[in-house]
Computed example of a mutant assay.
Amino acid sequence: MKTKRICYACDLKDNPESIATYKRYHVTGNTWPEVTKNIKQAGIVDMQIYLTGNRMFMIMEVDETFDPNKKAKMDANNPKVQEWEQLMWKYQQGLPWAKKGEKWVEMEQIFQL
């Protein structure tokens, strides 16, 4: 199976307590099972989130079935995913150059060894 890597960035609100709470939600086993199931059903093979300060980087490995528009529709039609997204938005904030309401902004690859 051929995979593709997609990377995104998003900021957390710059508050140590808020960041700590967000991190606890993302410890293995704490993320809601409906959310992880939805991620896998969308064709996301692996997902990792890294944090420095309040800036996060998400690295996704997706298979050939992944379509971001299809994933957005799946998310919109899943009440538990919507509940998760609303909860996470309490801790997140858009990047300064993000479109209104946009959380995760796709990153441009500028180097590969």
Rank of each mutant, 00 (worst) to 15 (best):
67 D>F: 02
67 D>H: 09
79 P>W: 01
87 L>E: 08
95 L>Q: 08
100 K>P: 10
9 A>M: 12
39 I>C: 00
25 Y>H: 13
9 A>F: 11
84 W>A: 01
86 Q>N: 12
72 A>L: 12
4 K>F: 15
71 K>G: 00
30 N>M: 08
70 K>Q: 15
38 N>C: 01
65 T>Q: 12
71 K>Y: 11
90 K>M: 13
6 I>N: 09
7 C>M: 13
50 Y>D: 12
84 W>Q: 02
5 R>V: 12
90 K>N: 10
58 M>L: 13
7 C>V: 15
50 Y>N: 10
79 P>N: 05
33 P>C: 02
16 P>W: 08
97 W>N: 13
93 Q>D: 06
9 A>T: 10
62 V>T: 07
73 K>L: 14
69 N>C: 01
54 N>W: 15
16 P>H: 07
23 K>I: 11
54 N>I: 10
12 L>C: 07
57 F>E: 04
17 E>M: 11
5 R>K: 15
44 I>H: 04
60 M>V: 00
61 E>A: 01
28 T>F: 05
97 W>T: 14
81 V>L: 10
16 P>I: 02
100 K>V: 15
46 D>N: 13
7 C>N: 11
60 M>H: 08
71 K>I: 00
91 Y>H: 12
35 V>G: 01
46 D>S: 08
80 K>Q: 12
74 M>H: 11
27 V>W: 04
10 C>W: 10
26 H>R: 02
13 K>F: 14
99 K>T: 11
57 F>W: 11
28 T>G: 02
51 L>G: 04
97 W>V: 14
35 V>C: 01
74 M>C: 03
18 S>Q: 15
15 N>L: 03
26 H>I: 02
13 K>A: 05
53 G>N: 05
18 S>I: 14
71 K>L: 01
43 G>D: 07
93 Q>S: 08
95 L>S: 05
15 N>I: 09
21 T>P: 00
50 Y>G: 09
67 D>N: 15
93 Q>E: 09
11 D>F: 10
26 H>P: 06
3 T>A: 01
85 E>K: 11
22 Y>Q: 05
69 N>D: 15
14 D>A: 07
61 E>D: 12
85 E>N: 15
85 E>W: 07
41 Q>M: 05
23 K>D: 11
75 D>H: 09
80 K>R: 13
57 F>R: 06
38 N>A: 06
47 M>I: 01
49 I>N: 06
6 I>S: 02
5 R>H: 14
70 K>P: 00
